[in-house]
Amino acid sequence: MATDNETVGGAVGNGAEVEAFDPMHQFQINRLIPVDFFGIDASFTNSSLFMVVAVVLISGFNIFSMSGRALVPGRMQSVAELSYEFVANMVRTNVGSAGQKFFPFIFSLFMFVLVLNLIGMIPYTFTVTSHIIVTFALAIVIFIGVTMVGVIKHGFGFLKFFVPSGVPAALLPLLVVIEVISYLTRPISLSVRLFANMMAGHTMLKVFASFVVGLGILGGWAPLAFMVAFTGLELMIAFLQAYVFAILTCIYLNESIHLH
């Protein structure tokens, strides 16, 4: 499986041509360093590479920009402080003081998703968050973590979460079922929202980029202009989806700490 690239194009002869215009090819996972860890495929892939790049960027940015610890911040320190205050405010307004324990997690989550989304906007890079398994893994960790917080804090009282207050008893069985289903679908909606946004945006960019090449010097300007505008929109979506991901995590956390 180390030669995934060749399996996509089929026949080796027209493989390159197919790859060039296949909008999904950018999501291909390539094993850069195959690793087998006690039977688990732990290969270092292009996805892993950009995860590492993101961690290095975030840590480097947040640690080295603060190395001066200046009273009056410089540019980089201001940005680091701004991101800190931004997430701290998000946690404070959505979860309250009980959420301070989870601030490092929300901060890491927000920065991780944001930087992965933004790195994906650079040509020839790989968008880690465009893979459902990555977003779903994050979402399921959040889901399990939030549920555990609720159970530890309220014990069996956490089951009241699924019983809406102030409704007729006759409607309760139906509503409890609806509540349980909506609770269980949270990790799916959370992960699919991010994954689908990233995948759709990048596929669209690729399709329009191929139009630019296909229409040539005469007709290629229109899709090129569209791409410029759409790149701006995609940058906004990259930020917005990271924000939505983090704020929904805060809201779920708040609900399991304070119930309804």
């Binding site: 961690v55 975030i58 947040n62 398994i133 990555v134």
Partner: peptide
């Protein structure tokens, strides 16, 4: 490709969490 992605997601995210 799921296994390597999850493995590296866990490694990088845990590292990021502790660094942060």
């Amino acid at each position: 490709t799921f296994a390597p992605q999850i493995v590296w997601l866990v490694i990088t995210f845990v590292a990021l969490y502790f660094l942060m």
